[in-house]
Design a protein around this nucleic acid. Structure first.
Lengths: 353, 353
DNA sequence: CTGAAAGCGCTTACAG
DNA sequence: CTGAAAGCGCTTACAG
């Protein structure tokens, strides 16, 4: 493999000069520059990043840490999109991305290596559950960092996340506008990063706007898996005054809830409306197609990476966050409620009963 | 950040000695070794990979090239699993993985950089469509390589792939055993790597075993998207002698086919059995849950990486491939056929009519 | 068992 | 506009 010496020799200049054309320094004569360029082409030269990293103290590589738990594979489609977003921006800035999926506990060594070796210029972390990352380690490493999808205001962490509150708000408001008054919520686990609290707040806000309150009986918790959606739906559907609609905090649990509804003989959306969250693939083609809140994971990765570059280049002060928009996607799993009176007759609205 | 000099000074030895304990050379006295170890701990020393790479000429990083086309996101869940498999093995061997999703055409520069910079010790490529990778470039770079999921015997490429033929065989045999005799096939695109031809061959083999042939009218093509599954199903369902079962070469198209069947008033599996391929998430919870051929993408990534390490360490001759097993997962989308006579009466089997 | 020294391929003041 | 030389942090013959 050709080195900078080979290029210098062929172009009859010093390595200093080669290095200068490499870095686009203006003070090189056009003639010399061309000779160097020709030599580089002829030799198929491309600089050795390790050597460059050694002098430069920067490596042209970004770390992407995703403490991925196979058990929480619910985020799979989401994650690949995030990765795509990160890789796209990195690569168009001539950066490479180094991937680490180790979890703090299981692979401490790999984690340390990753952070301490002067091997990466910055890091993007994607957390899902609290405590998956070793924050101390990260903070100690003084490597520029932005967190994608995680929000922890108190830590003054650079982060990019979607507007969870607005998502919860839009989902609930959609149900309210359809005429639902008795609305249940299937929440994600409480230790789940950021998202859950925000979405719940949005729900409260929407209900308040309509002069309603969330019945504590109608709030249950799952762990984002399909099965947990099914379990969490059970008490709601068994409730003496069962809700006519449920806001479920992710699509997978929403699927679980729908199958539970089917199991107990309820038709979605006729008897029960369901709104999900995420807009993962396939949910648009199932029966009924799912009404949901769409997130933009590729955008999340993209913006986080741009943010990281800005940080690396000291383009703005530390500790900023950006909130990404979400949107409501109305499909077939929501409809206006139908209330039955004791005789089983359908009435148009609860006020008629 | 502490360097090897700092450690040497603190332990009162030379850097040579530090380097030796680092590489576990036996010829270091126990006492000295301990002093060095203590110093490393106190200083939180971890070696600079760039410097090491410069002398060593190996970098402890693996390249993972996935020419990912957003349009073919059907492979998403599959891909993340592959990545997980690769990362797991790499990290437990103290290797990092560098990710490139650039396509040959769009990001030539990034691609070159990735391969030529003396920056990776080996590369795993994940192809989906022919021509996505620049084979010449890869061959020229003389970097050890294994291909995950791609099979091209003529090139004598190191590769790891799943047993597509066996998959096609098992899927078709399952239908035959249920009593189906008129079986359609929805194939993937012809330029799709390896998989398609193998799966089709498996179908032929199974049919032959039962003394049957594939009616050319009953073979249609999709591009692996949901929509294409729907389109490709249409001519089959409209056929004067429509098939009682269809083997669809991936789960997403299978979903499309099911929705098309529903559209034309056919019930799955009563009127039409469907077998998919992949076993992607969610298809087990839809209605009906999909009978399919399960692949093990994490295993694919894992085995490919182990293979790559063996190659890097010259543990076996180049040009070997390994075939991964698949398995049939029987769920609700397949059932014994029901033949109707002209009067619409259901008969038990075609031989009764 | 231990260490002095050269060298890996680059960049960066510095001098001209 | 151009180049000689030191230095980045490691490893590896080689000598002792």
């Amino acid at each position: 493999m050709a080195t900078i010496y080979d290029v210098a020799r062929l172009a009859r200049v010093s390595t200093t000069t080669v290095s200068k054309v490499l870095s686009n320094t203006p003070y090189v004569s056009a003639k010399t520059r061309q000779r160097v360029l020709d030599a580089m082409r002829d030799l198929q030269y491309s600089p050795n990043l390790a050597a460059r990293g050694l002098t430069n103290n920067h490596t042209y590589v970004l770390g992407l840490i995703i403490p991925h738990d196979p058990d929480y594979s619910f985020r799979d489609p989401f994650l690949l999109e995030v990765i795509r977003g990160v890789e796209g921006v990195a690569s168009s800035n001539d950066y490479n991305v180094l991937l680490s999926m180790s979890k703090k506990s299981s692979q401490r060594a790999a984690y340390d290596r990753f952070l301490r070796m002067g091997y990466i210029d910055g890091v993007i972390t994607v957390e899902t559950l609290k405590g998956e990352l070793d924050e101390q380690e990260l903070a100690a490493s003084s490597i520029p960092r932005v967190s994608a999808g995680y929000r922890e205001d108190l830590q003054l962490l650079n982060s990019v996340f979607c507007d969870d509150r607005q998502g919860g708000y839009l989902a609930t408001k959609h149900l309210l506008e359809l005429g639902h008054q008795r609305i249940g919520v299937i929440s994600g686990p409480v230790n789940f990063i950021g998202a859950v609290a925000g979405r719940l707040q949005g729900t409260y806000d929407a209900l308040t706007e309509y002069g309603l309150m969330l019945d504590p009986d109608l709030l249950t918790y799952g762990d984002f898996s399909i099965e947990s959606g099914s379990y969490a739906a059970e008490p709601l559907l068994q409730h003496a005054q069962r809700p006519t609609a449920i806001f479920v905090m992710n699509d997978r649990m929403a699927l679980g809830a729908i199958s539970k509804a089917r199991e107990v003989g309820l038709h979605v959306p006729k008897d029960l409306s369901i709104v999900g969250f995420d807009d993962i693939p396939l949910t648009s083609v199932i029966d009924p197609p799912l009404t949901t809140i769409r997130q933009f994971p590729a955008e999340l990765g993209k913006v986080a990476t741009q943010h990281l570059f800005a940080l690396i280049n000291h383009e703005f002060p530390h500790f900023t966050s950006v909130v990404l928009p979400i949107e409501l996607v109305v499909r077939g799993s929501t409809a206006a409620p139908v209330y039955e009176d004791q005789t089983g007759k359908h009435l148009l609205s609860p006020t008629n009963s």
